[in-house]
Design a protein around this nucleic acid. Structure first.
Lengths: 95, 95
DNA sequence: TATCCGATATCGGAAACCCGATATAAGCTA
DNA sequence: TAGCTTATATCGGGTTTCCGATATCGGATA
C-alpha cells in the first residue's frame, strides 16, 4: 500500500485533532515503535501542502474537507483490498 | 507498513495455493491494478528464499510452516495497528 | 522437430518511505 | 532576561518497493 503512514495518520486525525507529538505517541502504542521526528513531520507537512490538513495556532492538526474525502477514498480501497478481513481476524482469534 | 505486498501475498496463498499469474489476477481484482511481473516474481522469490513459501513442480506456491507462523504474526500486528477497524468500516457504511 | 505463446524470472533504475542528526521555535523557571 | 527543555521542522541518505524492459522456460500445436 502506497502511503500507508499517510493513511494511518489521516485516520488518527479524523478521530481527534492532534499535535505531532500526540500522533507519535499514538503510533507507538499501535505499532510498538515510535516513529522518529524525521518520519512524522515531513508527512504532516506533505499532507498540509496537499490541502488535506489544517493547523491551528497550537500546532494541532485537523482534517480539511478534502482530507476527509481523501480519507474515505483510502478506506474504500483498503476494504476492497482486504475484502476478507473478517476471515483474517478469525484466523488469529481461534488460537 | 513494511512489506505490505508480502503480507497480502502470504495471505492469498494461505487461502489457496496459487501460481504467480493467479496471484497477479487476484491482486488486480482487489486493488484495481495489476502488478507488473517485475513486482510479483521478486517478492515470491524473496519469500521462497526466506523459507516461507514452497513451490511444486507446476510453479504453484503454498505456505510452509514458517510461512504460516509469519503470516499470523503479520496479522497480529495488522490488527494492533488497526485496532479500531470496525469504526473505520462504519465510517464508509453509513454513507 | 520447429515454432509460437503465455508464464516465469531477472535486471537496472525511479520513486517512496523512513530514519538519525541537526537546527529552530516556543514555553517555563529562575 | 538567561538558560533549560520539549516540540517542531529540515536535511541528506539508506533501504525498500515497485516498475518497465528484457530474457528464459515450457507446453501446445502443427
Amino acid at each position: 500500500m502506497k502511503g500507508f503512514l499517510n493513511f494511518l495518520i489521516l485516520w488518527l486525525i479524523s478521530k481527534k485533532s492532534m499535535t505531532g507529538a500526540e500522533i507519535a505517541i499514538e503510533l507507538e502504542k499501535r505499532k510498538g515503535h515510535k516513529p522518529s521526528p524525521g518520519t512524522i513531520y515531513p508527512v504532516l507537512k506533505d499532507l498540509k501542502d496537499k490541502g488535506l490538513l489544517s493547523v491551528d495556532k497550537n500546532k494541532r492538526y485537523s482534517l480539511t474537507k478534502r482530507g476527509q474525502k481523501q480519507l474515505e477514498a483510502h478506506i474504500n480501497t483498503f476494504f476492497e483490498t482486504f475484502c476478507d478481513i473478517d476471515e483474517m481476524r478469525s484466523c488469529i482469534c481461534k488460537k
